[in-house]
Amino acid sequence: MLSRVALRSAAARQSASTALVARGSATEVSGVRDEKNFPRPVRGEPGKVRLGFIPEEWFQFFHSKTGVTGPYTFGVGLTTYLCSKEIFVMEHEYYTGLSLLIMVYVACKKLGPGIASWLDKEVDSIENEWNEGRRSTIASLEKSIEAEKKAQWSAEGQELLMQAKKENVLLQLEAAYRERAMQAYNEVKRRLDYQLEKSNLERRLSQRAMVDWIVRNVTKAITPEQEKQTLDRCIADLSAIAARQ
């Protein structure tokens, strides 16, 4: 248990230092964390242990040199040496400590898994609380980004709307110009038609007056004798035509 706690604390310190270094380097470059070159640290899990407190790495260290039994031989030999040379004196406190060690071992076997599970849950809850703030911040920032994108889209829509309004105004100006040009055309055509009708009317009046004058003068120039001769000639011509029929 103690080794597990020690490994966890060391892993946490290492993760914190790595996070600070990575965050500083990423901030110096562009202000945004480089997730590829500097990934976020993950909480490390303690390694395997043997005999309840000896790390597996110690056995692996001996395994490459002495084989499987090397660590156990080293431990037994060292204990035997300390006891034989009375470096470690077995007085009455030794047996008290041995009994306490057996009690601690039994307690660890009986209570250890439950306590370890409870501690793991506590660590996970603390880690979740820490990550919750980061996740909530990321979520709020993502919402802000989406809102900013929507605002930019709205601004682009306003630009399109203004452009459409300008085009509409130009179309209205073009329509007004063409309407006024048509009005001018109609006015000029009406005046030209008036002048043409006036000239035609004057010409007809002149022709009628000329015809009436000629008819009056011709009628005045015809004498009664000429009129009688002309009437007799017409009757003779009609009689000749009737005889041929």
Rank of each mutant, 00 (worst) to 15 (best):
P113Q: 03
G75Y: 14
V188I: 12
E197I: 02
G44P: 07
A12C: 13
I126Y: 13
Q245F: 14
A175D: 10
S64M: 09
S125N: 09
N168Y: 08
N128G: 05
Y185N: 06
R191W: 13
Y95M: 11
T223E: 03
A11N: 10
T137I: 07
G77K: 03
A164R: 08
S15G: 14
A209M: 09
G157H: 02
S136M: 14
A19C: 05
Q207V: 04
R191P: 04
Q229A: 07
S136R: 11
A181H: 08
D232Q: 04
V29P: 00
S136E: 13
K220Q: 07
T79N: 13
N168Q: 12
M210D: 12
R203P: 00
L2A: 06
L171A: 04
K109D: 09
G70P: 00
V104K: 15
G52P: 01
A139Q: 06
A147I: 02
L201E: 09
R203C: 04
S64T: 01
S17H: 10
W153F: 15
A155Y: 09
R40D: 09
S136G: 03
E146R: 03
V211Y: 13
L192Y: 09
I235L: 15
E127V: 02
E227S: 09
R203F: 11
R134C: 05
N131S: 02
R13F: 15
E132R: 06
V29S: 10
V123N: 09
I138N: 12
P224C: 04
G97K: 12
E197D: 08
A10P: 11
S9A: 12
S15L: 02
R134L: 15
S140N: 04
Y95D: 07
E156V: 05
H63V: 00
F38L: 04
I115E: 11
S199Q: 07
R13K: 07
S154M: 13
A240M: 11
E45Q: 14
Y185L: 14
K228F: 07
E45Y: 12
S30P: 00
E28S: 03
S25M: 10
E91H: 14
D193C: 04
K65R: 06
I145Q: 11
S144D: 03
S125D: 13
L192W: 12
A26W: 03
K109T: 01
V169A: 06
E179P: 01
A147Q: 02
D232V: 01
D232Y: 04
W130F: 10
P46R: 13
T27W: 14
A176N: 08
V218I: 03
K36G: 00
K150W: 08
S199I: 07
R8I: 08
L238T: 01
S144G: 05
G31W: 02
R208Y: 10
N128S: 11
G67W: 01
S125M: 11
S144F: 05
K150E: 11
I241E: 15
T18L: 11
I102K: 15
M182A: 10
C108P: 03
I145E: 13
K149M: 09
L170P: 00
P71N: 00
